[in-house]
């Protein structure tokens, strides 16, 4: 366990040392947030409610979505993908570390900073400009925190399995882009599920992506009661476990390829 903690710390320091790159990336996604904020503001101009969301709820939705998305950002994701792509995997096999756990530790390490930075930014925004309603009682607050943490783990599972696909293609960027596009749509990051036509909503709910954005936002906005919230978190954990196992078997398969055919 200790070695994974130190990996996480190391990753944190690494993130710090590339701080400029990290901050610029962060600003980049902040720009996207601003653009969608203004778009929604224009959409809500003269509308009191759309698909069950009023303007204040939509603002909260945007901020929580941004927070969830800034975890395990492009920056950390490409870190994992590069590990697979640049052939250092063979080196990692020599170390007494579990590849998957090591990547998880690193991701969580940089998540601490990503979370911190976006939390600060969001608080400033929330207080200064947006004025969003917070969850009312302690129970839903705690449930939201749990669902947020689970969201990171779900995302890790998806990102990790996607990264392993790069064993089969040299086009790492393409894979990341495709993953991002799918995640954006099916997690609810682009637009709340409530806006979806029924069939698309049903598809989205049956897939793991919804655990990243839809679950924490739903709980934050108090759109589910305590029982439903716990159920949603349980579904997150089902996916966390399933993706972990999938990642493990994909890794095992990849390692056999490496050891049989050479890196």
């Amino acid at each position: 366990m200790k070695k994974y903690v130190s990996l996480a710390v190391c990753s944190m320091q690494n993130t710090l040392s590339y701080r400029l790159s990290f901050v610029l990336n962060f600003l980049g996604s902040f720009i996207a947030l601003l653009a969608t904020y203004f778009l929604w503001r224009a959409i809500y101009d003269g509308q009191s409610e759309l698909a069950g969301f009023d303007w204040n709820q939509m603002k909260s939705y945007l901020l929580v979505t941004f927070f969830a998305n800034s975890m395990l950002s492009y920056y950390s994701e490409s870190g994992i993908t590069n590990k697979v792509m640049d052939g250092t995997v063979a080196m990692d096999l020599l170390k007494p570390l579990n590849f998957q756990k090591a990547r998880l530790a690193e991701s969580l390490g940089s998540c601490v900073l990503e979370g911190l930075l976006s939390a600060v930014l969001i608080s400033v925004l929330a207080i200064a400009a947006f004025g969003i309603p917070m969850p009312v009682d302690g129970v839903s607050g705690i449930l939201f925190a749990i669902s947020m943490l689970s969201s990171i783990l779900v995302k890790f599972g998806i990102v990790y399995c996607t990264a392993l696909i790069c064993f089969y293609t040299t086009s790492g960027f393409g894979v990341i882009w495709a993953r991002m596009a799918v995640t954006n749509l099916l997690s609810g990051a682009l637009v709340p599920f409530a806006f979806f036509p029924d069939w698309l909503r049903n598809v989205a709910m049956a897939l793991p992506f919804q655990g990243i954005v839809n679950t924490p936002t739903t709980i934050f906005l108090g759109m589910s009661d305590t029982r439903e919230a716990i159920l949603l978190i349980a579904v997150q954990w089902f996916w966390i476990a399933a993706l972990w196992l999938l990642g493990r078997s994909m890794w095992g398969w990849a390692v056999r390829q490496i050891t049989i055919h050479g890196g």
Binding site: T169, T170, S171, G174, W177, A178, L185, L190
Partner: peptide, 17 residues
């Protein structure tokens, strides 16, 4: 490079989404 079609597909897909 044989698999630029992954990139092409991903770019097209992103846009469609």
């Amino acid at each position: 490079s044989s698999d630029f079609y992954v990139m092409i597909g991903a770019a097209a897909f992103t846009q469609i989404v």
